[in-house]
Amino acid sequence: MNCAAIKQKLAAIGAGSVSETEYGRKGFALDVQVAPEQLVAAVSALDAEGFFIEAVTGVDWLGEQAALRKEAEAKVAAAAKAKAEAAAAAGEEAPPAEPVAEQGELPEDALEAVYDFNHYEALCRVTIRTRVPRSKPEVPTISQIYPGANWHERETHDFFGITFVGHPYLVPLLLPEDADYHPLLKDFRP
């Protein structure tokens, strides 16, 4: 078993993106992006190859869409400035500024569930990521494949509000039982 073979297996199940990373810099060999409905198949493929689960956690991407829009606008402005400077250097009149393309309705900001897997025999650490909209943060549970994921999913639910559909006991693990908040969300205010 090697990372190239795992990469092929994950690509074969239709994973959105399977990319090799620089292990020494990132700490994992494969970065896998899957849709929530592909998660169980991807995790099952790793289980069949003898991988064990290290962690499940979440990431709140609140504000990402606004940041992407701002970055695109900055690139357009820099290109317009460069054209104007080039025209001025050539003694020509500066071309009219191009309007920033309207991006329309941006997709909703998302939450991401991140799963880390490792293998005892091969140096092949794999990270699987799946994004869900903040308005409906639901991901299928993997606790039927990896029973140890049970408390990882409960903790992630506590702190990020991601619901693991099919989880056998999704009650608070670290927060009070009556907690109706998720303290690691970027918009959380105590």
Rank of each mutant, 00 (worst) to 15 (best):
A5H: 12
I6P: 00
K9N: 10
L10Y: 04
A12T: 09
I13W: 02
V18M: 00
V18S: 00
Y23C: 07
R25P: 09
F28C: 05
A29E: 15
A29Q: 08
L30M: 08
V32M: 03
V32F: 01
Q33N: 14
P36Q: 04
V40I: 07
S44C: 13
A45G: 13
G50K: 09
F51L: 12
F52Q: 09
I53A: 06
I53P: 00
E54I: 09
T57D: 05
D60Y: 04
G63Y: 00
E64D: 12
A66L: 11
L68D: 13
A72I: 10
A74E: 11
A74L: 12
V76Y: 05
A79N: 14
A80K: 02
K81T: 04
E85L: 09
A87T: 06
A90G: 05
A90R: 08
A90D: 10
G91F: 02
E92G: 13
E93D: 05
E93C: 00
A94G: 01
P95I: 09
V100S: 14
P107F: 03
E108M: 02
E108H: 09
L111I: 01
L111W: 03
A113M: 04
Y115W: 06
D116M: 11
Y120C: 15
A122P: 06
L123D: 08
L123C: 15
C124Y: 02
R125D: 02
T127C: 13
T130E: 04
T130N: 01
V132H: 00
R134H: 15
K136T: 12
K136M: 14
V139Y: 01
I142W: 01
S143V: 11
Q144L: 11
I145L: 10
N150S: 15
N150T: 14
N150F: 08
R154V: 04
R154I: 03
E155P: 02
T156V: 06
D158K: 15
F160N: 00
F160S: 00
G161W: 02
F164A: 00
H167Q: 06
P172F: 14
P172A: 14
L174Y: 14
L175P: 01
P176F: 11
P176E: 12
E177I: 12
D178T: 15
A179K: 05
Y181E: 07
P183M: 06
P183S: 08
L185W: 02
P190V: 13
